[in-house]
């Protein structure tokens, strides 16, 4: 039989892969956004696991809202990225030093 620990271990591994991705791909904004998506996926899996094993629907409702907010975040993030590429002709994080003064 599957236990909650199996799902929790898999989602924690996925979360740490997302964190590692943010650390090693710190130049590329698109890959950073994708790593945030991975982290959100891990969090959602965790929520569903707890909702299922505790028998509480609230966790699944929360996943619904996280999906909504993540979709909005991805849309606005990609729009900012497109504007950034038009202005700077690059998406390198290192080029984004306008606010450094």
């Amino acid at each position: 039989m599957l236990t909650a620990i199996d799902f929790l271990i898999v989602s924690s591994l996925l979360f740490s892969l997302g964190v590692v991705g943010i650390i090693i791909n710190r130049k590329n904004v698109i890959v950073l956004l994708m790593c945030i998506e991975l982290i959100l996926l891990a969090v959602n899996t965790n929520f569903i696991t707890f909702a299922r094993f505790l028998g509480d629907t609230g966790g699944e409702i929360f996943v619904f809202f996280i999906l909504t907010v993540a979709a909005a975040e991805a849309a606005i993030g990609l729009a900012i990225l497109v504007v950034l590429y038009r202005a700077r002709n690059s998406i390198n994080v290192q080029d984004l030093n306008l606010l450094q003064g």
Binding site: S12, S16, L17, V19, G21, R26
Partner: peptide, 17 residues
């Protein structure tokens, strides 16, 4: 940054598991 990333990832995943 690969060694730092692997270190943090292994630490985090190991701790949680």
């Amino acid at each position: 940054y690969l060694p730092l990333g692997i270190l943090i990832g292994v630490l985090f995943a190991g701790q949680v598991i």
